[in-house]
Amino acid sequence: METVQLTLLGGLLALDGTSVGQFMMSRPLVAGALVGWVVGDPALGLSVGAILELYLLVSFPTGGSRFPEGATASVVAVASAAVSVAPGAVPLGIAVGLVWGQLGGFSITWLRHANSRLVPEPTRAPRRSGDVTSAHALALLMDFARGAAVTLSGLLVGRLVVGSFAAAWALAPGASAGLLLLGGTVSAGILLRDLGGFRRRHALLATGMALGILGARLL
């Protein structure tokens, strides 16, 4: 029953990614929290979602570019990590989530090619408004089905991987956190470059760092 719920949630969150609304329910931090709630471990969902959000900070649905799909990555990562309490569950869940995020990105490209054959041909005007509506509705349905299929396949693989190998994890908890956050700090550097670069933003960066260190000590 939980697998069905997660699959449907994956489909719905995938829709939010580009097709419906883009209210950012599909961002990993939000999606992770939702999945954590579904699997009965909100703290785990937030923690995994936050790490994936850090990785995918620079992944935005810009134009026709291909981007990793944060929504399905988050559902797969959190639901897989929740299978075991062994120390390797979170790292392995995140690894499977990152791989499935990439596969989700490829599936979006495939869907957009499929949509090209589905939409009304401009050189041949549609006879009825229903032609436009039905093509659009079918495309939305296909996106939901795509998101659900990517999620389901990720859940099956992720839960198997985590269930089988999580206990074999070789790092201490502190080092595990360091490793998981490390890849994400690359994204933070890329983002600073996108936001104007070090030369232009160094004063704001330094102020922010001071505030961050102070906040971490006080809160």
Binding site: L195, G208, L211, G212, I213, G215
Partner: peptide, 18 residues
């Protein structure tokens, strides 16, 4: 973008200190 740069600094600070 300025707010974003300030936030990136705060994020790095929090990750280093928390």
């Amino acid at each position: 973008k300025g707010v974003g740069a300030l936030s990136v600094g705060a994020l790095v600070g929090v990750l280093l200190a928390r």
